[in-house]
Design a binder for these strands. Structure first.
Lengths: 224, 224
DNA sequence: GTTTATATTTAGATTAATCTAAAAAGAAAT
DNA sequence: ATTTCTTTTTAGATTAATCTAAATATAAAC
């Protein structure tokens, strides 16, 4: 059940594959090459190694899919990454736009004990500073914990939990609209293709661009 | 003045060379092989690379010495290591006997910004949990900041600052003798070759084995 | 259904870091 | 001053991860 220690490169690949599977539905050689900033033949070579380690299945010219143990490894790394991002922001006050690259390096070297202490200090959080869910130790990803406002169904009420990439200018703008964390909003209508959406905030209404709506994370009130 | 990013292995070697220079006076191929747990020819090969990077000077069959830039790099890594050890103990409550290996990995990947935040949170400490001095950002090592009790001159008074490797059993034993941090002790006499030493603690006296005395760090009162 | 473009893979080379086995240099012992 | 032992170095091989250039397969366009 215990897996042997593995190189940083291998962890980077399985993580990238996992994220691509979630975001794009599939992980191709090209997409991996772009995501990891390496040449395509490097990806092909690594895929061969990952396959030998039983971390991925591969169909020639068709891309890769994680095996259960590959997914377990990937989610472990992602958990490290997101916990670290949150910890660096909350506990050490690092600027929000700098924690990603820091976590990118730290995620590969922290022990399970350190991971546990960090999770403890943070109160076992379910989402990172960007609103992305933090997988549990068991590898469960609570996608519904926080939802981008852009994914909310019209007519549904929700509570704002977090604003991704909290640039001061953006925060000020959202503040003017009354869109703070813990504020309850109701989605009135939504344009197709990620266009603008109408919101009810308290007793007033406002319209929000799709790009902004995608960066505001909410908890639907039913699930409270 | 800025040096290019360097591999973890290179950092491990310059760190080991620096520590060996301090502890043994010189860094030989064999000593490095033992310290880093690699074969002797691996050390020879790496020395060649370190020399090409102008991090060490090398005289065949005579061992290596750090250049100024090599020492700068080594002290930077050691600073990271000792700050991290202290942070993991103080801020995250990791067990004292586990922080070394954790810091061993983290020391290579933290940014200067993170280093700075950690130092800040700790109040810019001068020694790690083992009593070893933390080099400053400028590369100065305040060897006198904390002194092992075993190195204190007879007749001198000092204040206990820290006990290395704080195993519960040892702490209880020292507690029974009244040897707590901030307690003032006076060294009465010391046996040669690291043998037992007689101490005055408040109004009582006690005798301490040389091995224990080497793990109690003090600040001579003159320098307060 | 060819042609064209793009994605993927093979082939071959490179670099860092390591190893073992054997040769050479230095230090210690008689 | 030899001999012996230890340390250091050379020689040669290995592994992981990468690259470029060229070949091949799939997908898109006409």
């Amino acid at each position: 059940m215990e897996s042997r220690p593995v190189s940083q490169a291998v962890e980077d690949y399985v993580k990238a594959i996992c994220l691509l599977e979630q975001q794009e539905g599939k992980a191709t050689t090209k997409a991996l090459a772009v995501a990891l900033d390496v040449a395509a033949p490097s990806v092909t070579a690594m895929i061969k190694r990952l396959h030998a380690m039983r971390l991925v299945r591969h169909t020639r010219y068709r891309g890769v899919a994680l095996t259960p143990s590959g997914r377990r490894m990937a989610l472990e790394v992602i958990r490290h990454h997101r916990l670290l991002e949150l910890y660096l922001v909350e506990a050490l006050g690092l600027p929000w736009d700098q924690v990603h690259e820091e976590a990118e390096r730290l995620e590969h070297v922290i022990s399970e004990e350190l991971e546990e202490r960090i999770a403890e200090r943070l109160g076992h959080p379910v989402a990172d500073p960007h609103g992305d869910p933090i997988p549990t130790k068991g590898g469960e990803v609570d996608q519904s914990a926080y939802l981008p406002l852009s994914e909310l169904n019209p007519g549904t009420a929700a509570v704002i939990k977090r604003v991704a990439d909290q640039a001061p200018a953006k925060l000020r703008y959202l503040g003017d609209l009354g869109l703070f964390p813990e504020v309850r909003v109701t989605l009135l209508e939504k344009a197709p293709f990620g266009g603008p959406m109408s919101l009810e905030v308290g007793e007033t209404r406002c319209t929000l661009g799709g790009d902004l709506a995608r960066q505001i994370y909410v908890l639907p009130v039913e699930s409270l």
